[in-house]
């Protein structure tokens, strides 16, 4: 009998710490599949941020550096400059990348650092209990926006993929979602493309993944899937915002 589906070699067989219904696990699997497909596990180094993403090393049989909160793109910069032959990826949540780490990611992108950032946007600080993030949707209730996010006080949700796409150093910026099989397949292609472009030394690549946090959204996993479709995607449109076709630097 032919085996047609199995756990990727780059994903360890471990009980997950993620909540039931969370899509971090899907993101992990997609990255592991891409590492397998490109045959790069032994020269890939992962750098998770702080938050639910931090336990990356628990799931991936690769070298891992744990970065301070928001600083993974700076750590990735130092590591890639020291080891240009390695594949370096950061794995950050929206609290990590779109709040405390905006400076580091913008400047790593602007320098065209040849690294990849996988950016999990679930619109809240997950690990600390669902506080409001810069990505929280207008009107969304969180533990620190109990009356719903109000633009008059908290401003508007920040669209990182679009913003990073404006920078010359970026070779690939896309937003995908992880809530249906069709979207997961699109995400899978984006993850592979980002790592391929790093392999081809084309510059900074970022894949934003709209992700569920049903626990902190206070909804069921199925309701969370609906919220991605009906609330997140209308504000955070899916698509490719930048894609270089060659090393066409200015």
């Amino acid at each position: 009998m032919n085996r047609i589906f199995q756990r990727p070699a780059s994903l360890l067989d471990r009980p997950t710490h993620f909540c039931p219904g969370c899509t971090h696990g899907i993101a992990h699997r997609l990255i592991a599949e891409a590492i397998d497909e490109l045959g790069i596990r032994e020269r890939t180094i992962g750098i998770p941020g702080v938050g639910c993403c931090v336990f990356l090393y628990h799931y991936f049989p690769i070298d891992v550096l744990e970065a301070p909160h928001g600083r993974a793109p700076a750590c990735a910069t130092g590591m890639k400059r020291a080891q240009p032959d390695k594949i370096i990826f950061a794995y950050q949540g929206d609290g990590d990348m779109a709040a405390i780490g905006t400076s580091e990611v913008i400047h790593a992108a602007n320098r065209g650092e040849n690294v990849t950032v996988f950016y999990i946007n679930n619109s809240v600080y997950g690990m600390t209990g669902g506080q409001m993030a810069p990505t929280t949707l207008l009107g969304q209730q969180t533990t620190t926006s109990p009356y719903g996010r109000d633009f008059k006080s908290e401003g508007y949700p920040i669209r990182m993929a679009e913003m990073l796409a404006t920078l010359e150093g970026v070779c690939y910026s896309t937003r995908v979602a992880l809530h249906t099989p069709r979207h997961v397949n699109q995400a899978r292609k984006a993850v592979i493309k980002a790592l391929e472009m790093q392999n081809a030394e084309m510059g900074f690549s970022v894949v934003e993944m709209l992700s569920t946090c049903n626990t902190n959204w206070r909804v069921t996993p199925l309701e969370a899937i609906d919220m991605i479709e009906n609330e997140m995607i209308p504000y955070y449109p899916l698509g490719v915002f930048k894609e270089r076709t060659g090393k066409d630097f200015l």
């Binding site: 550096l65 970065a67 130092g78 890639k80 020291a82 080891q83």
Partner: peptide, 9 residues
């Protein structure tokens, strides 16, 4: 943090 990345290498 760049120092950290290079030093970790």
């Amino acid at each position: 943090n760049m120092v950290m990345g290079a030093a970790a290498s």
